[in-house]
Design a protein around this nucleic acid. Structure first.
Lengths: 321, 321
DNA sequence: CTGTTAGCGCATTCAA
DNA sequence: TTGAATGCGCTAACAG
């Protein structure tokens, strides 16, 4: 139809017909069908963001960054949760391929490169966010978890702590692994022995945090500091410590990765490595859009964003024995 | 093709051909195209949730409820933010119609019934969530804001407060209006005069909260209690009070609507009317799905869910003058 | 049980 | 400047 030309401003149209068409559109309440358009164009103008849990403030902030950047270019974004499960993730990716999304931002549930390969096989551009995957031929945006953990551990060491429990995430997730690595490096450099019994892996969730804190408290010599690998672990661990009658920071110190926005506003408490979630989302989306529009983008990029180490009230000196 | 029958398990197929087809599918990495399917079927198996800000924990929790319920029935959900703007909302709805979503869950940016009518005109079922709209012929799920506000105000009155500042949301939003109404009723029933100068309307955001708190503090006789209409307002107001050198609850009391999940876990502080966000999302989705599948659902339903009034540390008696 | 025909609503290509 | 034919990938309805 000529209608198509009017709607898309493609081709030349006499003013008269255009007005006639526009009038008809208004009168009939006609709304073009994106499905048909996408089918024909082989492009959906839709991108996806796959995260573990859209309930985590770190990811919601990231999501806003993603969405704002996408909106600016006229793209829609679909959000998916994997709940940190590789099977869930695989299902989600299949669904996204079925929908023929133009690109995917992926916070991988594990470090396997298979999901990335899967998308590439279907010619869907991917940007890996927040975490590493084994294979390296992907665009990616993240912070340096190893360095962050190193600095946070240094901070605790400088305060005099020697028995620092590391409450990390799933051993399959790169951030969890890297944060343990940074922790180890700091200890080793300080000439201290790394005690395997003080390193824990669990879910990136309040429950995971509780369980790990409980296990850590069961050690013969109680740790004087707790390093939580993310905000949810910190929360759970904190609750567990309180229930065990311990005060933070008087009895034990705590430090963690990731801000907890509302908490921070009300009563800034946790000493954290604050990652720039919004910017991470934005940058990742920009990278993806560049792949989609620019033909010549060259090799894959690896963007490492800086973080802030913010010292607050949850850390203090080792209490007198 | 026969392929379609294999994939959809429709019609009868010999085991041999089925296996042959399945083998080919696996080998080629074939993934069916949802766009084409939806175009043909005139159904997308996709629903939408439109909220003001997906960053607000109240809405993320609600979103999880929505999504979990949808997933259970094989539906996908698209999330949209309106940032409390009617124009944004209108744009989002057009986009959703273009995408031919099968249904919409709407947290309306204003109480105008026009957006609902628009969707109905396009034969898209709607469930209105959390807020009222003027016209009533829609399914809806929410809590009784008037009652919640009434009880919260009563609580403050019982503690002896007489000058209670009401920091509410936009006057165009039903929850903001209803919460003011509940506040007024409590005062009136207690035989107190409602001071117009103590009722404020602003954005449902930390900034809004700050501004209203500032204005309230400028009153000749300072309020002894602050009633925030939602969590974001509470945060902003709290910050403003702190900066003014006031302690909560020693100098002033605060009460609010909506939990702040992480905050609550760490250091339960605010006295709140806690709405069951997750259930609200779930119920709304169930209602929508009923409309979509069941043909005979009868009249529109209005589900009012109960809330919890939780008393915590942010409220206390009026300090001695 | 399997294949064929047709059309969902759009945009590209070519003709008028 | 406009219209007609064609096909994107799928499924419903019918034939074989």
């Amino acid at each position: 139809m000529t209608v198509s030309r009017v709607i898309n401003r493609s081709g030349a149209i006499s003013r008269e017909t255009r007005e006639r068409v526009e009038a008809a559109i208004a009168e009939l309440g006609y709304v073009p069908n994106t499905l048909a358009r996408s089918l024909r164009m082989k492009a959906t103008q839709t991108l996806a963001l796959v995260v573990s849990d859209i309930t985590n403030p770190f990811f919601t902030t990231l999501a806003r960054g993603v969405q704002d950047a996408a909106r600016a270019e006229g793209f829609n974004v679909i959000f998916c949760n994997t709940d940190e499960s590789e099977t869930e993730q695989a299902e989600q990716l299949v669904a996204l391929v079925q929908k023929r999304v133009d690109g995917v931002l992926l916070v991988p549930a594990a470090s396997s490169a298979e999901p990335v390969a899967y998308l590439k096989r279907h010619k869907i551009p991917v940007v890996v966010l927040d975490r590493r995957v084994e294979d390296c031929l992907v665009d990616s945006v993240r912070c340096d978890s190893e360095l962050g953990a190193y600095q946070l551990t240094r901070l605790l060491l400088d305060l005099g702590h020697r028995r620092i429990a590391m409450l990390s995430g799933p051993a399959t997730v790169s951030t969890a692994v890297d944060r343990v690595a940074g922790y180890r490096r700091a200890l080793t450099e300080a000439g201290l022995e790394v005690v395997a019994g003080l390193i824990f892996h669990g879910a990136y969730s309040p429950i995971g945090g509780r369980q790990m804190a409980q296990a850590a408290l069961a050690c013969t010599r109680r740790p004087t500091a707790f390093f939580a690998a993310n905000n949810f672990i910190a929360i759970g661990a904190y609750q567990q410590l309180r229930e065990a009658g311990l005060r933070v920071p008087e009895d034990v110190s705590m430090a963690t990765f990731d801000e907890m926005p509302l908490t921070t506003l009300i009563e800034p408490f946790f000493t954290v490595v604050a990652q720039p979630a919004y910017e991470m989302g934005q940058r990742a989306m920009q990278l993806l859009l560049a792949r989609l529009t620019n033909t010549a983008v060259g090799e894959c990029q690896e963007v490492i964003l800086p973080f802030d180490l913010i010292v607050r009230r949850s850390t203090g000196p080792v209490p007198a024995a």
